[in-house]
Nucleic acid binder design. Sequence first.
DNA 1: ACTGAAAACTAACTAATGTTCGTTACCCTT
DNA 2: AAGGGTAACGAACATTAGTTAGTTTTCAGT
Lengths: 194, 194
Amino acid sequence: MVKTKKLSKRELILTEAAKLFKDRGYGGTSMRDLAGQVGMEAASMYNHIKAKDEILASICFRISGLYISQLGEISATEASYGDKIKALIRLHIRLMVEDGPAVSVANHDWKYLPEPKLGEFKQARKTYEKGFAALIEAGIAAGEFQPVNVSVALFTILSAVRWIELWFRPGRELSAEELEANIITVLLNGLERK
Amino acid sequence: MVKTKKLSKRELILTEAAKLFKDRGYGGTSMRDLAGQVGMEAASMYNHIKAKDEILASICFRISGLYISQLGEISATEASYGDKIKALIRLHIRLMVEDGPAVSVANHDWKYLPEPKLGEFKQARKTYEKGFAALIEAGIAAGEFQPVNVSVALFTILSAVRWIELWFRPGRELSAEELEANIITVLLNGLERK
DNA sequence: ACTGAAAACTAACTAATGTTCGTTACCCTT
DNA sequence: AAGGGTAACGAACATTAGTTAGTTTTCAGT
C-alpha cells in the first residue's frame, strides 16, 4: 500500500489548508503556518505538493467537479422543476455542512488561482450557473415559477446558500434538516404570508 | 481651503484602495500597487494615512456606520413590516450599486482588521443584524410573515443582496430598479407560483 | 520674494514569503 | 543485512512586504 499512504498525507495537507484558507484567506496563510498545522516542516510538504497554488487548485476543482456532476444527475431526473430546484438547494446545504472549509475556499479564494487555472475555474462556474439557470427558465416556461428575471432568481438562490458557512453551527439551535426546510420555504414560498 | 485638499487626497487613497482590495483582496494588494493606482510613491501615502490597516478600518467602519444609521431611520417609520424589509433591501442594493467596492471590502476583508478594531466591527455587525432580525420577528408576531426561523430569513435576505457585486453591471440588460423589483419579488413572494 | 508647512521623493530596513538545496532518517523489499 | 526510494529536516535563497528616515519639492500666506 504505497499509494494509499502518499495520498493520505497529501489529503491531510489539503484538508488543513482548506481550514486555514477559510479562516485567514489564501494570502494570509503561509506555508509555514500550514506546515505547523499539518505537523511537519514547510519544506517537507513539497514532497507531497508541487506548489502553494496547486493546493488551492486542488481544493477548488474538487468542489466544482462535485457541483457539476451532481447538477447533471439532478437535471436528468423526472421530477418537477420545483423539486429539482429544491434538490439543488439541498445539495448546496449538504456540501456546505459536510465539506465546509473546501466549499468556502472554492467560493472566496478561487480568484487567487494563477492564470491558466483561473480561466478554467471561471468556465466551470459558468457551466454550472448556466445549467442551474436553464432549470429556472424551464420552470418559468412551464408556468411553475413566477416570471421573474432568471439571473436574479439564480443568484438570489446561490448566494442564499453560500453564506451558511458564516453563521451555521450544526447542532446549535437548528439542525441541518430544519435549515433546509426553512431556506426552501423562504426561497420558494417567500417571506410574506398570502 | 487647506482641510479640503487634505481630505480629498486621503479619500482618493481610500477609494482606490477599496477597488484594489475588492479585486485582489487585502493581502493581495501591496502598498506599492495602491500607490501606483493613486499616482504617487508608496512612502508618500504615509503623509495621509497612518498604516495599511487604517485604510481597511476606515472603509469598513464608514460602511457599517451607514448601514446602522439607515436601519435606525427605517425602523422608526410607521410603515408595515413588509415595507420596512423592502426598504432595507432597497438600501442594500442602492449602497451596493453606488458604493460597490467599499461595500464589498466591508463584506469580505473585515476579518483582516487587527484585534482592537476587529472586535468593534464584529459588534457593529451584530448590532445591525439584531435590529434587522427584530423587524422580521415583529412581522411574524404580527402575522404579516410566515412563521419561519428568524435567523434563516435574516441571512437569506442579507446574503441575497451581498452578491450583487459579483455579477451586476448597471445598465447591462437590467437596471437597478428592475433588480430591486425582482429581488423583492423572489424574497417576499417566493419563486413558486401559487 | 520669503518662509514654513504640507507633501512628494529616494533609499533603506526589517520581517516574512514561497521555494530549493543538500543531507539525513526511515522503512519496505530482497 | 543491504539497498533504494520516500519523506523528513535545517539552512539558505531571492523576492516582496509594510514602514521609516532623511531630503527635496511644492505652494499658499505674508
